[in-house]
Simulated scan of single mutants.
Amino acid sequence: MSMILLAEQVLNGLQLGVMLFVMAAGLTLVFGVMGLINLAHGSLFMIGAFAAAAVAGATGSFLLALAAALAASAAVGALVEVVVIRRLYNRDHLDQVLATFALILIFSEGTRWLFGSFPLFLNIPPYLAGPVSLPGGIEYPMYRLTLIAVGLLIALGLFLLISRTRLGIQIRAGENDREMIAALGVDISRLYTIVFAIGAGLAGLAGALVGAIQSVQVGMGEPVLILAFVVIVIGGIGSIKGALIAALLVGLTDTLGGVLLPALFKQFMEASAATSVGSSLASMAIYILMAVVLIWRPTGLFGARG
């Protein structure tokens, strides 16, 4: 394998990783602060993608499409928290799983009713189209580099929000002792709605950004949701830093595994068999990574020790 191909796959892994972080950051915030298992988080990813595709088709503006995705998913998230999720905080996790799974079905059928069953397409804007020449003779798509930069900026923004703002202090306190901050006069219901809306908005923004490099279709959020759960388990529930590092690990493992493992097995067997075996192992690689991390540290890389 050439060094140029390897470098391109590393960049692909970073791009996948930062988009997984944007998706998983909201999920880990919701679980860490509220203790809520939200299976419908992938549906919010899908809603953001469809909102962006619809607005881009109507206005031709990619930036308006991103704003629409963020606003639509955050608004839907806030509405869902007030109407449905608020009744689940004192219920066990099985009730939360069943209720949020029902939301997946509602959102999927509702989206199909509004937009139809055929995929929509969100075009990359002309100013982000085309390749960029990088050192070493690497030609890499401008849009994917932009995704990496945007994801890292979102990570920085979340870090500043959590560590430097009054809302961030309340969120961190809510993770540790929600009864105490409620006793100190913090409106816990309002805090939960804000946190859920932030998480939903991030999921929708991720859906819009990814929607420009794949088709926008019903059910597109569920595969990403599985990877997001892997990320928060590896990184540690409630940890933004853990989510970022774990997302990058998962992205690089998934991308490099799909290239390196088939190439490795070609040395020992026929090309077709090597591709089949290598691809199968590559699809298992992130789960093997999760198992190894949990054996070493059951609470995740940056989770609180029990």
Rank of each mutant, 00 (worst) to 15 (best):
L98Q: 11
A99F: 14
A99D: 11
A99M: 14
T100R: 07
T100V: 13
A102S: 15
I104W: 04
L105M: 15
L105E: 11
I106M: 15
S108R: 15
S108A: 15
E109A: 14
E109N: 15
E109I: 10
G110V: 12
T111K: 03
T111E: 00
T111F: 07
W113L: 15
L114Y: 14
S117A: 15
P119W: 03
P119F: 07
P119N: 00
L120Y: 08
F121V: 15
N123F: 05
N123E: 13
N123P: 13
P125L: 06
P125Q: 08
P126T: 04
Y127D: 14
L128Y: 06
A129N: 13
V132H: 03
S133H: 13
L134Q: 09
L134C: 03
P135W: 10
P135D: 03
P135N: 09
P135A: 11
G137V: 04
I138H: 09
Y140Q: 09
P141Y: 07
P141H: 04
P141S: 05
M142N: 14
Y143F: 12
R144I: 00
L145I: 04
T146Q: 00
T146N: 00
A149W: 07
A149F: 13
A149T: 05
V150R: 01
G151E: 01
L152S: 06
L153P: 05
L161T: 02
L161M: 09
I162C: 00
R164E: 13
T165A: 06
T165D: 09
T165N: 06
T165L: 05
L167Y: 03
L167S: 04
L167V: 14
G168H: 03
G168V: 09
I171L: 05
I171C: 04
R172T: 08
R172D: 05
A173G: 15
G174F: 08
E175I: 13
N176Y: 02
N176V: 12
N176D: 12
M180H: 07
M180P: 00
M180F: 12
M180V: 12
I181R: 04
I181A: 03
I181F: 09
A183Y: 06
A183F: 06
L184M: 14
L184W: 01
G185N: 08
G185S: 08
V186K: 08
V186Q: 10
V186G: 10
V186R: 02
D187M: 01
I188M: 08
Y192P: 00
Y192G: 05
T193H: 08
I194H: 00
I194D: 01
F196P: 01
F196Q: 02
A197I: 11
A197Q: 04
A197R: 00
I198D: 02
I198A: 00
G199F: 01
A200S: 14
A200G: 07
G201D: 03
L202N: 04
G204N: 09
A206D: 05
A206F: 04
G207L: 08
G207D: 03
G207C: 06
A208L: 07
A208S: 10
A208Y: 02
A208D: 02
L209F: 11
V210A: 13
V210S: 09
V210R: 04
G211D: 01
A212S: 15
A212V: 05
I213H: 00
I213D: 02
Q214Y: 09
V216I: 06
Q217K: 14
Q217L: 12
G219Y: 08
M220C: 05
G221I: 08
G221V: 11
E222K: 10
